[in-house]
Structures are given as structure tokens and as C-alpha cells.
Nucleic acid binder design. Structure first.
Length: 116
DNA sequence: TGGGTGACCATAG
DNA sequence: ACTATGGCCACCC
């Protein structure tokens, strides 16, 4: 996997934000992309997540879901159930690959990080 | 060079 | 509520 410098910078920012997600909270790809300036699309965030496991530091990718709160990326984990188990371990209820009461658990980086 | 794909999202009808 | 379409940007044939 080769990364141009611009991508590497984008990846770093994505990982930084993902690492800042509080335990028991979740966010979506679009919010991260928008927070980073939306110069990139949400697809790039998902692409970054696909490469997250290349990072030395653990990236809580299980806290990133799509805008519906669905665990779209679960198949990319070590085990298909890993993502759900990690979320449930943090107190996030998951039903049929979807986060229950998603709005309650939602964590918006653009809002939380900017307003302190 | 160009088409297909992707852990996506917003809008229109 | 649901489908269709376009935008997004990088990757891989």
C-alpha cells in the first residue's frame, strides 16, 4: 500500500479523530470527512479505516459506522463479530448489525472538538 | 485512457 | 418511505 504525502496527512488526521472518540460513543464517516474540511469525501475515510490496521497504534474503528448507525465495516475486522462485541463491551447496544439509540451515542467531532 | 469499485452522503422525485 | 443519480477521490485492472 503506497501513500502519497497528501494521503498520509489525511490518514493521520482521520486516525487522530478516531482515537479521540470517547469510549461508548460512535461517529460516522461523513462527520469525520466534514470535520477534516470535506476536501475529501466520506469514501476516503472508509478507505483510511481499511488501512487502519497498518497503524502501530490501535485505532478504534469499531466506533465508526455509517450515517445510519449500521456496522458496515464489520466484515473488515478480524472476525465478523469483533466489531459488535467491542461496541457491546463499551456499553453500546447493537441489534442486527445496527446501533440501538444511535443518536444518543453519536459523537460529532466538528462540534465536540471545536467547542471543547 | 477509461471503466469499475468502495467500511459514504446528499438531494430529487 | 424508497429508488435513482451525482459527487467524492483513490485504487486496481
Amino acid at each position: 500500500m503506497k501513500l502519497s504525502e497528501k494521503n498520509a496527512d489525511f490518514f493521520e488526521k482521520v486516525y487522530m479523530v478516531v482515537k479521540l472518540i470517547p469510549k461508548g460513543r460512535v461517529t460516522n464517516y461523513g462527520s469525520i470527512a466534514h470535520y477534516l474540511g470535506s476536501g475529501r469525501s466520506s469514501r476516503m475515510v472508509g478507505w483510511a479505516m481499511n488501512n487502519a490496521h497498518f497503524q502501530k497504534d490501535f485505532v478504534p474503528a469499531h466506533r465508526v459506522v455509517n450515517r445510519e448507525g449500521v456496522l458496515t465495516g464489520k466484515h473488515h475486522f478480524a472476525s465478523p463479530t469483533q466489531m459488535q462485541e467491542l461496541l457491546e463491551a463499551e456499553g453500546v447496544e447493537v441489534l442486527n448489525d445496527k446501533i440501538v439509540n444511535f443518536e444518543s451515542h453519536f459523537w460529532n467531532p466538528a462540534k465536540e472538538l471545536e467547542l471543547d
